[in-house]
Nucleic acid binder design. Structure first.
Lengths: 337, 337
DNA sequence: CTGTTAGCGCATTCAC
DNA sequence: GTGAATGCGCTAACAG
């Protein structure tokens, strides 16, 4: 209980602490006989090195921080899983910072990377401002961005403009012209760039098809099924309702489906719905959506960080992950009224 | 970049390191004038204390470990969120250990609590064996169990036997007698007690109603929607199919719903389905289920750990969280053939 | 009130 | 090969 230290082991084995340290770290400069003595001393004392002391001495923490917004969202969980998977296979521990408020966001950005608390850092979906990036960079800890981007750092990106374009385009190709978009607040304190990008993709597809943008078809609200349902209800009971709705996420698409069900409007006969992410439940719901490589982005991000920590001082690497249109049962040509 | 140390600050401010340490730790034994000097020195040097050195000196790590199986499962994520919430409000960091293999389970149980790596530990859903408990106890780190139990530790439990009993009973009250149960493997290497408990609750309700247990109505499989779907398909295409199915989780219930849909059997007219957990999507799916306090269990677990770490050496506390039957649209009386 | 000093537990020179 | 000494950065106890 009074956990043994390296000194105890040294005494027990009748050697110096240096020697013990050497066998712990697999130094080859130890004779087999003494190594054996030390090993058995370690065993009888049930000794484990104190990680803190080790880290202090080494100047490394063997932990990497992951900063993630709303980690309970299905899409985020998938990314996290990817990161966790590569980290679990390494010697690094993962410390999780969940941010659900701007205050917490600021706090994490300012403090986590400092205090030699971590050897590396992964930031998911939260785009650093230039000022934040500058500060982050100064701390010297390797950072990789997943699902977001900044010139100063490594990043695994998803082309959300293209993804949203593709979604909208799918609707247009089906014959729709009255296409609404339900998303989060484009201007948001978290600096979620994805919201802006997907909105842009939507606008772009519209423009390209010469479909005038209608402000009353662009609804913004907090990210939740409930809120999306409310917004969908609003636009669907409009005097001139849309025949298709593209949502920022599958979660929101489900809210739209719910609103439609409540209103008795049939999907996809009377209303087409397309989401974004392709979360697991989407398949069961026959939801047409844009698939992005959620899990893969986490995997890649973790991998990239590990590499960056090893090499150091390279110029930032950027990877772009593809999106894919998954056509299922919630989209169809508009009603031929 | 060459991060300033407490010594630099002391020199800059023209004081001793002890004084700097005092102002950092808000000791009141510092005059306002010197405190001010130190503070400004800290500011100009952009100094942040090295957390590692601090921890080594203090003998505390200010981090707590959370060991969680399959953290991507919706129910688990909810619990995790509860824990994260109380930890974020404290000064403790959360380090996450996800276990998806028995090997990893063993590794976590054996090593995480040692090496003064953490000040406390929360184990979710994984029941320690007596041997493991013994070992864990010896490390001296406070531990609380969430959604599982052991006499040696604090725990936040859910009465799964009662929950499963309630679910089965609901079906029986509706008039069903041909009730199947789809769950995980009762004998599993992770030592998930919940599987056993829910199975017991099912058996108990059956017995109490004098409904003989049928082995062919008890299906076991890996925990996933897909597998549950497969099992449901199997039992539903049986020569004498059940009229109701109780599943270990909502996720599996969705698989059952999917199988029913594929087979063209109507829910709830021809088949009743009841799940367990009441995950978010359950409401949208009109799934009848047993609600357990997922988020709350995390909250309580985190809180309990914080308290235990402060008080120390109390006898283990046990809390039991309630379950609740949520009747929605997937259960009804059996068909009156 | 404040400067000085002795560890915290381990890794790493440097001599032997 | 191996033991002893030095330092990682900080806190706490001890003088003053």
């Amino acid at each position: 209980m009074a956990t043994a230290t390296i000194k105890d082991v040294a005494k027990e084995a009748g050697v110096g602490v240096g020697t013990v340290s050497r066998v712990i770290n697999n130094s080859d400069a130890v004779s087999d006989s003494t190594r054996h003595k030390v090993l058995s001393a370690i065993a009888t004392l049930d000794y484990t090195p104190n990680a803190n002391a080790r880290r202090l001495s080494l100047g490394k923490t063997m932990t990497i921080a992951v900063i993630v917004p709303f980690f309970t969202r299905p899409s985020v969980v998938e990314r996290l899983r990817g990161i966790e998977k590569v980290l679990a296979a390494s010697d690094y521990d993962l410390i999780l910072y969940n941010v659900e408020t701007v205050h917490r966001r600021r706090d994490c950005f300012q403090n986590v990377s400092r205090r030699e608390r971590v050897d590396g850092m992964i930031i998911i979906s939260l785009m650093p401002t230039d000022a934040e990036a500058e500060r982050l960079k100064q701390t010297g800890v390797p950072i990789v961005l997943v699902d977001t981007h900044h010139a100063e750092f490594d990043s695994i990106m998803i082309d959300d403009v293209a993804g949203a374009y593709r979604a909208t385009r799918h609707l247009i190709d089906l014959g729709h012209t009255k296409i609404a978009h339900i998303g989060d607040f484009v201007d948001n304190p978290f600096n979620f760039q994805q919201i802006h990008d997907r909105y842009q993709g939507y606008r772009q597809a519209l423009k390209e098809a010469n479909i005038p943008f209608r402000a009353d078809y662009h609804l913004e609200g907090e990210h939740s099924r409930r809120e999306a349902q409310r917004l969908a209800y609003e636009v669907l009971t409009n005097h001139d309702p849309p025949t298709a709705i593209f949502t920022f996420s599958d979660t929101q698409a489900i809210g739209v489906l719910e609103a439609a069900r409540g209103l008795g409007v049939h999907v996809p006969e009377q209303l087409s719905v397309i989401g974004y992410d392709d979360i697991e439940i989407a398949e069961y719901l026959h939801l047409t959506t844009i698939r992005q490589s959620l899990f893969q982005s986490g995997l890649d991000g973790g991998q990239l960080l590990l590499e960056t920590m090893a090499i150091r001082d390279q110029k930032p690497q950027e990877y772009l992950l593809p999106t894919e249109l998954i056509v299922r049962g919630t989209t169809a040509p508009p009603p031929t009224t």
